[in-house]
Every structure is written in C-alpha cells, then in structure tokens.
Design a binder for these strands. Structure first.
Length: 775
DNA sequence: CCACTTCCATTTTTT
DNA sequence: ATGGAAGTGG
C-alpha cells in the first residue's frame, strides 16, 4: 500500500509515519516539507483516521488547495474533500460564521480589510477631534493589531497601566479611547477585521466550553504549516484545540520567520517542546531544491544570526553556477540588467518565463523592473501589491454586495451611499454618523427610520436618502430570488456604474470597466466551482472568499507565461529555477525601518535567506548605487548582506564603480540598443573580478524618520537582546528603581515581576515597560 | 453638493 | 512620480 512512501528519505518517512502525539518538524528550505505534510495526512487517512477529524492550517489558501489535490491523488478525491484545510483566517472565519451569534455577531458578519479598518479609524480619530498628525490611522491600526494579536482586549488595556503609559510616552494618550471606539463600531457594524477572526475565535473557545469541546473532538489531528510565522493569538487557538488529543504536528523553519512585524512570534516554534509533553522532533536538513553553491551561500548568510535552532542544511546536488552579484549605477540600469539576463538565459537555456522570479524588498521597486521587462519584450506578472479586489471600482461593487448581506456594514455603506454620485454629500453623511452614534444604531437603521428622527436634513436630501434605501431594499428582494452572480449583475446595471465609468475614456477608465466585468466573471466562476464541489454558493461565502483571498489565489485566466515579480515576503514557500534578488542596498535591504535592533536586523537577514533559497539553479543579486525614491535620486551603499556571503560561492559580475565612471548601460538609451546588446563587445561588461573591492567603512546613517519611529516604539525593544535576568536592578520611568524577582512567558510576551522600592511588586510586560537595566 | 485645484505623504513586509 | 485628501469656487 505504501508505494508513496518510497519517495521519502529516512527522516521524512519517520515524520510521516509518526501517527500520534505532539511532534515538530524542523524543515530547512527546500527539504521536502510539503511532501512530508501531504504524505503524512494521506497516511493518517490510510490508517483509518476520518478526514473530518483532520485540520491542516497553511499559510496561504493556494498552498492548502495544492496540498489537497496532491492528497486526493493518493486517497481519492471524495475523501480528500472532507479535510479541513486552509489558512487560519479562512478556517476560523468559517467556524465563526456558524457560531457568531454566541458572540453577539450576526451570522452574516462581513470582514473589514485593512482599507476599511484604516478608514474607520480615520473617522473615529476625527470624531474624537484628535490631532491627525499624532494619530495616524495606519499606525493606530498597527498598534491595535498588536493588542489583538496578544489578546489584549479593550478591558485588558484599561487595566494595564503599562500599556497606557507606553502610549502616553508615544504621545498618543487617547489610544485606549480610540481602541474602544473602534471595537464598538466594528461590533455594531457586524464586522470583523482580520485580527478579530483570530481574537474572536479565542474568545469563542475560552468562553464557551461546549464549543471548545465540540471542536476539540472534531479536530483530533491538527497540522500547522509555517509554524514559525504564527502569532500569539494563533498559538493559543492551536493550543486550545489540540489540548484534548495532543495530536499536533507543527512544521516550520525558524530561519524563515519573516512576519514578526505583524505579530509572528518566533518563540512559538522555539518553545514548542516546552508546551507539549513528549515532543518528537524531526529535522529535515537535506535540501533537494537548490544547487550546492546556492545552499552554501545561503548558509553563509544565515549563520550571522545569533538566535536560531541548530541545524545543518546540506545538499547532494551538484555545485551549479555561483551566486552572481551585479553592481549597477542606477535602478534603471539594474532593471535593464535583469531584463537582459532573463532574455539571455531564455535564449541560451530554453527556459520559460515561468522559470524566473524577480524578488524585491518593497513593492515600489517594481516600476523600473516593469519598464525594462516591457522594453525587452518579456511577459511578466506582478503578484501582491494592490490586489484586484482592492481596486476602487471593484471594491465599490463589492460594497453594494456587502451592504446587501449585512446592512450594518458601515464602511460599505459610506462607500456606496454616494457612488455613483446621487447628491448625498459629506455633510449629510456626517449628520448620519452623528445620529447613528447618538441613537446607538447602525447608520442603515437611521436611514430606514428617517421620518422618525430629526437630524436637520432638508427635504431634498431626505428624498435622495429615501430613494437610496428603497433601491437597496429592492436589491434585497432581488437577491432572495436570484443567485450571487445575477444579483451582482443586476446591481451593476441598476446603479449605472458602468455608465459612470464610461465617461472616462482614458486607458485607465477602460480598464476599470474591464475590471468590473472580470469581477462579475469571477462571481460566476466561484458559483460554478462551488456547485461542482457541492459547497456554499451564497453571496456571503463569496464575499468571505474574496476578503481572505490573496493575489495568488485567483489564477488569472490569461494563458500567457509570465516572469513573476513579487516581494520576498510573497515568495515564501515558492521556488523558481532562476531567481533575481534586486536592490541589495543599505536602507533598502536591510530596510531603514528595521535596523534599530538586532532582532529586526536578524529578521531582515532571514528574509534574505528566504530569498536566496527560492532559487533552484541560479541566483542573481543586484544593487544600484543611486535609485529613485520619493521622486528623488538617492545614493546607496551596498547591503551588508553582500559582505556576509562566503566568497567561495559567489561571483561578482561587475565590480563596484564610482558614480562618475559612467553608466555601464548608457548605450541602452540609444535607438540601437538591441543591436548593441548582441555584439560581443558586451561580453567584457561582465568583467569578472576575483577580489571584491575592499568594503568601505559604512557611514553611520540614521535616517531622520528613524528617530520619530523610535520614539513611537517602545524604546526597550532591544531589551530582548540584553537579556534581563532575575536579580537585575532596573529603573522604570514611573515606578522608580526595583529588582527583578522573576520572569515568565516567552518572546515579546515575557513578563517580569519586579519589586520596586516605592511601589512594591508589579508584573510588567517587557514589550511595553520602559525599563533601564542599571545593575 | 460637486468639480476642479492644490497639497501632501508616500515606501516595509500581508492575512 | 503619483495618487489620495483637503480646500475652493460655482
């Protein structure tokens, strides 16, 4: 029966066959992790475990889908269909959907994306008449996200002088008030944001024992992929669900943890052995993906990180090409180098577009690459960035649909109440919000009862509002008798969105119309697919899918083969024969925002490690000495990561040149560009230099914005590195001098009990407490 | 209330 | 450079 096991090495096989208990699979890059997970689940099922009792949490929905398909080939489609597989967010959104009433949410709750959350926070900040420079909606959202991911509710915040003090120090004393308002408003709107999907799940499991019991019994075998990137909230969910049967298998690689910025807690993986009894450990250390030069180059970089699990990634693969490094003068030149090299490799090695990926640190870097690829005639596709569903015109249509299933959805209402323009202005909307807050009802309810409230609207405006409501009600009725596609189509026609967009005959305007068409097609596809698999075809389920979809999840139908352009973060879990990593410059990669602590810098280094290890056959690194940023030319120094690469595995294509030495690709601007490139003369351009230029002493750059951000962050982030221990004397801004009595918790959640001379014993969350070690 | 203009920040990464 | 927000005149 176990022919499928023959493809596995010893450790992989052990990991697959270990059926019960807690286990951790430390899976180095390219070590066949997905294969192990797939076979492991298949094996469980072959051994008689019911698919309904297996929960597998992945990092993207696409990963879940692919894994499911692979499992289906082993155990059969009908069985594989019953597996619960998906991202934390989508799996628990589904569970919340059926249990929402217990938490006071409607079953049809809608999901706020980041845009919605930021907008809501913007209006709250305005309503509270706070300084919008101090209180930047986006930053406030980040802070609230931190709270939620650490399970700090509004109440917990109110009881936590430390947090309040930290916010006061960051000149945001009203943070608690904003937080409370935000949570209230989301609740009243029947909406959950991304973090709520996890936080509310935790609430559900902790406050309702019968619910916990139900899902503990259901999910007897739990698997978590990319465990290194789970946050505290996710960790608690996993812990709670697996508590009964303790059949928990987590897979991850601490060296690939790159999501600390959104609360991922690397200690979840580092401390796994502490959290469960008798943990079995499997280390997958053989890399099957990359050539030896790539594996060793990657190893030489990551070894500079202090905090990591002990492992030794090796490969039996041949050496292959060395990792190539290209110094260029400008970002434009860098783009042309990438485009040209891709073109050359395609010609010489008969490679396809899909064999290539260009990875960058920030989305903004894609522009110069796009220009160059377009000129070179290389088809490409950008992943990530603004997703399809976030485009204005698409979101407008989606907002109508959202409002239909959840009339309380405030952000959706605000979007469509005057779009297309129907004479309902800002003033009117503000009056409505005020009324809604006064009566403690959703705006929609106010609208339905306009005649009963007097909020100072003139009769003309009242009629317009009335018409809007009547229209929405008619849509409501329509949707009850028609499917999601017909409803959406009906709405698009009735509100004349296309007519509005038609006024704009620019290419952008035309593409907007196409986007709406594509959205409608998307809904149709969704219904077809769901029907085929006998799943929910409702509007609600479509909207949920959309809210949690990533760019990778909706496969474009154009059958063109494309070079992939994406951020390194997006590239996690993917692999390509040829990988280009661009912008290896100080302040860009590592990012200027991530150089104030060792922890941050180490995350950047892991990011670099992830980038290199995406490559199978060849990796090209490039940098530019000047680059357009913020519309200005900015000078740049080579990234420190380049110096960390072991020179045995690299090859420098063009040595660093001073700016005034002229542009390597200057002739590229000339009309004969193409021909110039074919001439052998160009060969010397790839001049090999055996020694790298002596590294210049790096000027100590402290960007201006760094200071500001440092002030906003808790100033003691680096405390994690200085290792506070029991017995240390510390000084606290408010409580004065004290001694550390004990430490508990892990990572960002370490709490210290401190005996203060004046204030007595206090437990402080190190993350937020402002402590200075004085002895 | 709307259309047009000017101004401003934006660039770290994403479910 | 660019797109969104805020301000201004009709």
């Amino acid at each position: 029966m176990s022919s499928y096991l023959d493809n596995l090495n010893d450790v992989q096989k052990q990991a697959v066959l270990q059926k019960e208990g807690a286990m951790i699979i430390i899976a180095g890059a390219g070590s066949g992790k997905t294969r192990v997970l797939t076979y492991r689940i298949a094996n469980l099922m072959k051994q008689g475990v019911d698919a309904f009792n297996i929960l597998a949490l992945t990092f993207t929905n696409k990963a879940a889908r692919e894994m499911k398909n692979r499992i289906a080939t082993i155990v059969g489609e009908s069985e594989a269909k019953n597996l619960w597989m998906g991202t934390f967010h989508s799996v628990f959104a589904r569970i919340l959907r059926s249990e929402a009433d217990k938490l006071g949410f409607p079953k049809n709750f809608t999901i706020y994306d980041t845009q919605d959350s930021v907008k809501l926070l913007g209006s709250i900040i305005k309503e509270l008449e706070l300084d919008t420079d101090r209180y930047k909606a986006k930053q406030v959202l980040n802070r609230i996200s931190q709270f939620k991911n650490s399970l700090i509710t509004v109440k917990a915040y109110d009881n936590n002088p430390e947090l309040q003090e930290a916010d006061r120090q960051a000149s945001r004393p009203k943070m608690g008030e904003i937080y409370k308002n935000y949570v209230d408003r989301c609740f009243k709107a029947g909406c959950m944001d991304f973090d709520d999907l996890l936080l509310r799940t935790n609430q559900l499991l902790s406050q309702f024992p019968e619910v916990l019991n139900k899902y503990q019994n259901k999910f007897r075998y739990i698997l978590v992929d990319e465990y290194q990137d789970t946050n505290h909230s996710q960790y608690l969910i996993v812990k709670a669900l697996s508590d009964r049967f303790q059949n928990i298998c987590v897979v991850g690689d601490d060296s690939q943890s790159i999501y600390a910025f959104r609360g991922a807690n690397i200690n979840n993986i580092l401390n796994f052995q502490r959290d469960f009894d008798e943990v079995k450990i499997f280390k997958l250390e053989q890399n099957y993906r990359s050539t030896n030069n790539i594996v060793q180059a990657a190893n030489s970089v990551i070894k500079n990180n202090r905090s990591k699990l002990d492992k030794d990634i090796w490969t039996a693969n041949v050496g292959g090409d060395k990792v190539k490094i290209m110094h260029t003068t400008t970002d434009g030149e860098e783009g042309r180098f990438v485009a040209r090299t891709i073109f050359d490799i395609m010609m010489q090695k008969q490679a396809k577009n899909t064999d290539f990926a260009v990875l960058y640190r920030t989305n903004a870097q894609s522009r110069s690459l796009e220009d160059a690829l377009r000129k070179q005639g290389v088809d490409y596709r950008i992943y990530g960035g603004l997703s399809f569903y976030q485009r204005k015109e698409v979101k407008d249509v989606l907002s109508y649909l959202r409002l239909l299933i959840n009339p309380k959805d405030e952000e959706a209402l605000k979007r469509v109440i005057n779009y297309p323009p129907r004479g309902i202005g800002q003033t009117t909307i503000e009056k409505l919000i005020v009324a809604a807050n006064q009566y403690n009802r959703p705006i929609y309810t106010i609208l339905e009862n306009l005649e009963k409230v007097n909020i100072g609207l003139n009769s003309g405006t009242q009629t317009k509002l009335q018409n809007f409501i009547t229209m929405m009600q008619s849509f409501q009725i329509f949707s009850e008798n028609n499917n999601a596609f017909d409803t959406a189509d009906h709405i698009v026609k009735q509100v004349h969105i296309l007519a509005d967009l038609d006024k704009d005959s620019t290419p952008e305007g035309i593409s907007r119309i196409e986007n709406i068409q594509e959205l409608l097609n998307g809904i149709k596809d969704f219904i077809d697919k769901q029907t085929e698999e006998d799943l929910d075809t409702s509007l609600t389920s479509f909207l949920e899918d959309v809210a949690l979809a990533t760019d990778f999840d909706n496969d474009k139908k154009d059958n063109k083969e494309n070079v992939s352009l994406m951020t390194i973060h997006s590239a996690k879990g993917l692999e390509f024969p040829y990988v280009f990593i661009v912008g290896l410059e100080e302040n860009l990669f590592p990012s200027a925002m991530s150089m104030n602590t060792r922890a941050e810098l180490e995350e950047e280094r892991r990011l670099f490690y992830v980038a290199i290890t995406r490559a199978e056959k060849a990796a090209y690194l490039s940098l530019a000495r000047t680059r357009f940023r913020w519309g200005k030319l900015v000078d740049a120094e080579p990234s420190r990561f380049l110096e960390e690469l072991d020179e045995n595995y690299i090859e420098v294509l063009a040595k660093p040149r001073q700016k005034n030495e002229g542009n390597l690709f200057d002739d590229f601007e000339s009309p004969n560009t193409e021909r110039q490139w074919q001439t052998p003369k160009n060969a010397i351009r790839y001049k090999k230099v055996t020694t790298q230029a002596p590294p210049k002493p790096r000027p100590l750059v402290v960007p201006k914005n760094l200071k500001k951000i440092a002030e906003n962050l808790s100033p003691n982030t680096n405390l994690f590195d200085t290792k506070l221990t029991v017995g240390n004397s510390v000084e606290h801004a408010r409580f004065g001098i004290g001694k550390v009595v004990s430490l508990e918790g892990a990572g960002p959640n370490i709490k210290a009990e401190i005996n203060f001379e004046k204030e007595g014993n206090k437990k402080l969350l190190l993350k937020f407490a402002k402590l200075k070690i004085i002895g």
